[in-house]
């Protein structure tokens, strides 16, 4: 388990990094926290000609709030997000999801940009990005592209990011105060990738559910927006009956695979269970409840 030979560059600016990527014409890989890339290199499943290590580009690591949006530099460590007060107060859904990403040593190195660019459909961040209807910023030779989740995630471990582009920023709209939110998941052991994860965001106006966002991780090739289930909530309101109906619908909508850890049928079952748990939890949190 040693990687094949590669050349190694450590740029300190995005421009420099982009120049390296262009130089290798698609044969180079960006190295962020290395928590997904290093295993692939060590198994020789990925054999890039060069690594462009972006860990020294300080300008890619920040958490800023601006006009109702949280902007996170792509190199921001998962652990920094987990501990950020701004994130906790403005986007507690992200805090809750982050704590479920692997184990502490992984979050200490792993980055939000790396997780999104890696695009594992069982991962938490892609589901959160989708639930929040956020955006990612991709920078390349031709400038910046701003991509919505449905424009970004293509299929398993594949995004629309070009080989000479760098993901530089993640933009997450801050839901209005009083919203309900939850991230609930099931894994065989603490810290494992989820068999099924559910991100929920509920926006209310008076007693009405103005907007429901329900996204499943681990239930298909990309994070799955469960629109049919969202519609039930937006139509019937936030009652135990509508939660159950939405959870049942969610289980129909997902398209999970079978593997050694769980069959598709069990993942569907878990989708129902965790959608219901997440909805109940999110509803309790509306207007600051717990």
């Amino acid at each position: 388990m040693k990687p094949a030979p590669f050349e190694y560059h450590v740029p300190t600016t995005v421009e420099e990094a982009l120049a390296h990527l262009r130089h290798y014409g698609g044969e180079a890989k960006v190295l962020a926290g290395g928590q997904s890339l290093m295993p692939l290199l060590n198994f020789r499943l990925s054999r890039p000609a060069a690594l462009v290590d972006i860990n020294r580009i300080g300008a890619l690591s920040y958490i800023e709030e601006e006009n109702g949006t949280l902007r996170l530099g792509a190199l921001t460590r998962q652990r920094a997000i987990e501990r950020s007060d701004v994130v906790r107060s403005r986007l507690p859904l992200l805090t809750e999801a982050t704590a479920l990403v692997g184990h502490l040593p992984i979050r200490t190195r792993g980055t939000i940009g790396g997780s999104l660019a890696h695009a594992d459909p069982s991962a938490e961040y892609p589901a959160v990005l989708t639930a929040l209807e956020g955006q990612v910023v991709a920078r390349g030779a031709g400038g910046e592209r701003i991509l919505r989740p449905e424009e970004f995630f293509r299929t398993y471990l594949t995004t629309t990011l070009g080989p000479d582009e760098i993901l530089t920023e993640v933009r997450l709209p801050i839901p209005p105060p009083g919203s309900g939110w939850a991230f609930e998941e099931f894994s065989r052991r603490h810290g494992d990738f989820a068999l099924v994860g559910i991100a929920v965001l509920l926006l209310v106006e008076g007693t009405r559910c103005a907007k429901a966002r329900l996204v499943a991780a681990g239930a298909g090739p990309v994070p799955a927006r469960l629109r049919g289930a969202e519609e039930i909530l937006e139509r019937d309101g936030l009652t135990e009956q509508s939660f159950e109906a939405a959870a049942a619908r969610a289980a129909e909508l997902v398209e999970p695979d079978s593997d050694i850890h769980a069959s598709a049928a069990f993942r569907r079952h878990l989708t129902r269970v965790f959608t219901l748990r997440a909805l109940r939890k999110a509803a309790r949190r509306i207007h600051g409840g717990h």
């Binding site: 065989r188 850890h261 769980a262 069959s263 049928a265 069990f266 079952h269």
Partner: peptide
Amino acid sequence: ITPERLFR
């Protein structure tokens, strides 16, 4: 005894 086996 996995959750999957109990489910089935």
